[in-house]
C-alpha cells in the first residue's frame, strides 16, 4: 500500500492551500495537522500578540487554538474554512483574555504598587513612538473595530477572508472598516495637531 507523495515535499507551508492540506489529510493525517501548525502559527501568533500585547499570552493562545483544531471534527471537511476558523478562535480567546485582565486590573488597584509593576509587562513587545501612537489609538476602539483593523492592515486578509472570519457579509466588512478608519481619523488627527 503506497500513497501518492506528490503533495509531500514543500519546504514552504505558506504555499499550501487549504485544499492541498485537506487532500494531504486523506493520505497522511499526521502530516496535514503538522502542515496546519507550520503554516499558520506565525501569523496567528502575530494576530494574538497585537490583541493581547503580551507575547507569552499570545503564545499560549495559539497553542490552545491548535489543540481545539485537533479536536474539531469538521476541520478537514470540504466546506470547512480553516483559516477563518483559526483566526476567529484566536480572536475570541484573546478578547476574552483581555477582558478578564481588565477585570483583574480593577482588583489590582488595591494591591501595593511594587507588586503591580512587576506583574505589568503588557507593552514589552512593542517599540517605537509612532507604533505606540497608532496602537494607543486602536486600543481605544471597540473590540469589533480593533479586530477588523488588525485583520485587514496587520494580518493582511482580503475583505472576503475577513467576512469569513467574522461571519458577516462583504458589505458589513466594508462599512465596519470604513467606520473604524473614520474613528482613527478622529482620534489620531488631534494628537498629531498638538
Amino acid at each position: 500500500m503506497s500513497a501518492s507523495l506528490s503533495l509531500v515535499a514543500p519546504q514552504a507551508p505558506a504555499q499550501w492551500t487549504e485544499d492541498d492540506i485537506k487532500a494531504l489529510h486523506r493520505e497522511q493525517p499526521q502530516a496535514a495537522m503538522e502542515m496546519v501548525v507550520r503554516k499558520f502559527r506565525g501569523r496567528l501568533f502575530y494576530h494574538a500578540s497585537c490583541i493581547t500585547k503580551d507575547s507569552q499570552e499570545a503564545y499560549d493562545v495559539v497553542q490552545e487554538v491548535f489543540i481545539r483544531a485537533m479536536r474539531e471534527r469538521r476541520f478537514y471537511d470540504a466546506e470547512f474554512r480553516q483559516k477563518a476558523w483559526l483566526y476567529r478562535v484566536t480572536s475570541n480567546l484573546c478578547f476574552n483574555l483581555v477582558r478578564n485582565r481588565k477585570r483583574r486590573g480593577a482588583i489590582l488597584e488595591t494591591v501595593p504598587r511594587k507588586e503591580r509593576d512587576e506583574g505589568d509587562q503588557l507593552d514589552r513587545v512593542f517599540r517605537g513612538e509612532q507604533r505606540e501612537e497608532i496602537l494607543a489609538a486602536i486600543d481605544q476602539m471597540t473590540d469589533a473595530h480593533k479586530e477588523i483593523l488588525l485583520l485587514r492592515y496587520y494580518d493582511d486578509l482580503s475583505y472576503a477572508e475577513i467576512a469569513a472570519v467574522l461571519d458577516v457579509k462583504l458589505g458589513t466588512v466594508m462599512s465596519r472598516l470604513s467606520r473604524a478608519r473614520r474613528r482613527l481619523v478622529d482620534v489620531l488627527e488631534p494628537i498629531r495637531a498638538d
Binding site: 502559527r41 501568533f45 502575530y46 500578540s49 495559539v62 491548535f66 509612532q130 507604533r131 496587520y154
Partner: peptide
Amino acid sequence: AQVFPPIAVVDTAVPGFWDAMDEGL
C-alpha cells in the same frame, strides 16, 4: 493618509521558539 506601520512582535524565527508549543501540542 493613514499608515499602519508594522507592529514589532518578538522574533518567531529564533531557533527553538516553537519548541514549547510542540511539546504542549
